[in-house]
């Protein structure tokens, strides 16, 4: 392979310019520049400049985007193996998730993307997702009966809410604030920072910490771009990406603390006395339906067997 000339990689992110993932990729750019002796760096096109995630995934496969920071649910319909990460309650705790994703299982899932034209570089934290509603506290699955809950456009997310007794309502992200305020939907689900930055907390005042999902985000490179690099150059990209994980985590934790403080200051109700057992039992059909494939079932088993520490 002839060495690729010095260049700036194009990287896409839907988040705004000061978001931890965007900052982390800029950090990666600095590291890459240092490692490559100034040959490579990265320009981040933040805030949907290059399109929605499902579109930028395609553009990454075509080689128009070099690096992409993507939500796992968007990858679910492309790379089968990523489905295990979207399963509700697949991770017992943040420690358990980190252990899995930074270990061999995480590597295996990242490597599974190659046949689809993507090179998995790293997983970024995307926090812990819980339900929020205008005024209904959710302590048991029964509390969700009949609630119209907005979910991401993902089969697993739809199945989870339906199994919990809710009425899953896929809806574009941009419409959720108004729909919550107007009562078109009765709730949605997200992590602390998004609950805060989308201002959904203004219209959905009860945050029930069900912690049903810890789905991460993936940092990927276009395989077309990757294959043009020499093994040494590929090594720089990998190392810079891995070094950005901790930076992302540091920024993320600051963000979570900030968001939590802001939301509590706003006087929102935080429901944290929740027994997760009935929720876990209620979502078992999701596992049967979406993780019955032997490869996925095996991944699920190995994730569950991974100890927390």
């Amino acid at each position: 392979v002839p060495a690729t000339e010095a260049r700036t990689f194009r990287s896409a992110d839907i988040h705004p310019t000061d978001y931890p993932t965007v900052e982390a990729v800029r950090y990666m750019s600095d590291r890459l520049e240092a490692l490559s002796g100034g040959e490579f760096d990265i320009r981040v096109y933040y805030g949907r400049q290059l399109g929605e995630e499902r579109d930028t995934v395609e553009q990454t496969v075509f080689g128009a985007i070099d690096i992409n920071r993507i939500n796992i649910p968007v990858l679910n319909n492309v790379v089968t193996e990523t489905n295990v990460l979207s399963l509700p309650f697949i991770f017992r705790s943040v420690e358990h998730r980190d252990k899995v994703l930074r270990g061999p299982i995480g590597r295996e899932i990242l490597d599974a993307m190659a046949p689809y034209g993507l090179v998995g570089l790293a997983f970024y934290d995307s926090g812990v997702r819980s339900f929020y509603t205008p005024d209904t506290a959710i302590r048991t699955p029964e509390d969700m009966t009949g609630l119209r809950i907005r979910v991401q456009n993902s089969d697993v997310a739809v199945a989870m809410v339906e199994d919990l007794g809710g009425n899953a309502t896929p809806m574009e992200f941009g419409q959720v604030y108004e729909a919550l305020r107007n009562g078109t939907i009765d709730g949605a689900e997200n992590n602390w920072p998004s609950y805060s930055s989308t201002r959904h907390f203004e219209v959905a005042r009860v945050y029930s910490l069900t912690q049903h999902s810890m789905v991460p985000e993936a940092l990927v490179m276009s395989k077309l771009t990757w294959d043009k690099l020499t093994p040494e150059q590929q090594g720089w990209v990998r190392q810079a990406a891995e070094e950005s994980i901790d930076e992302m985590r540091r920024l993320w934790d600051l963000r979570v603390a900030d968001a939590r403080e802001r939301i509590i200051a706003a006087g929102n109700t935080i429901v944290d006395d929740i027994d997760k057992t009935p929720f876990i039992e209620a979502v078992q059909p999701v596992y049967e339906k979406h993780a019955s494939d032997p490869v996925l079932a095996d991944l699920v088993r190995r994730i569950q067997e991974t100890p927390d520490d």
Partner: peptide, 14 residues
């Protein structure tokens, strides 16, 4: 190129 992908909620090829 996207033959093997599926459209979420429709279950058909992208």
């Amino acid at each position: 190129l996207v033959q093997a992908w599926t459209i979420p909620t429709l279950g058909v090829s992208t």
